[in-house]
Simulated scan of single mutants.
Amino acid sequence: MKQPIIVTKITTNEEGISIFSKNNFDVNKRGGMFLTDQIAAKNFRLRRSDVGYSTQFHLAGDATFIIILKGSLKIELQNGDFIIFNVGESFTAEDNLPESITFNDKIHGHKASVIGDEPLEAIHIKL
Rank of each mutant, 00 (worst) to 15 (best):
N104L: 01
K22Y: 03
H58S: 07
N24K: 10
N28E: 12
F20V: 02
I17D: 02
G31W: 09
G32M: 12
F57K: 04
I107M: 12
L69E: 12
D50N: 15
I5T: 13
V114F: 00
D95Q: 00
V51A: 09
E94M: 02
K111F: 06
I39N: 09
N104E: 05
L69V: 11
D117K: 08
G32V: 13
T8L: 00
G80A: 05
Q78P: 00
A63G: 13
Q3G: 10
I10V: 03
S54P: 03
V114R: 02
D50F: 15
G52V: 13
I68N: 03
F91T: 02
G116E: 00
S18I: 06
D26K: 09
I68R: 00
D105N: 14
S54D: 10
D62M: 15
S90E: 06
I83D: 03
Y53F: 09
E121L: 13
V51E: 07
N96R: 08
K106W: 01
L73F: 07
F85L: 01
I39G: 09
V27C: 06
T36R: 07
L73D: 00
V27F: 03
I123A: 01
E118L: 06
L77N: 02
L59S: 05
T36A: 11
M33K: 14
S72A: 12
T102P: 06
H58Y: 14
L69A: 11
E99K: 05
I101H: 14
L120I: 04
E118C: 12
S49M: 05
K70Y: 12
H108Q: 09
N43Q: 13
K74T: 05
S49A: 12
V87E: 11
E94T: 10
A63H: 14
A122M: 12
L73S: 04
Q3I: 14
I17M: 08
T102I: 05
F25W: 05
G109M: 12
E15R: 02
V114H: 04
E118S: 00
A93Y: 00
L73P: 09
S113L: 11
Q38F: 03
R45A: 15
L35A: 14
K9W: 00
K9H: 03
L46M: 10
F25L: 07
L97S: 10
A112Q: 04
G61D: 15
F34V: 13
D62I: 15
P98A: 05
K42V: 15
S18Q: 06
S90C: 12
P119C: 13
N79H: 11
N104P: 06
L59M: 12
N13S: 07
K9T: 02
P98Q: 03
G88E: 07
V7Y: 01
E121F: 14
D105F: 08
L46R: 11
F44W: 15
I68D: 02
L46E: 04
T36I: 08
G16V: 01
I67T: 08
K42P: 12
I67H: 11
R47M: 13
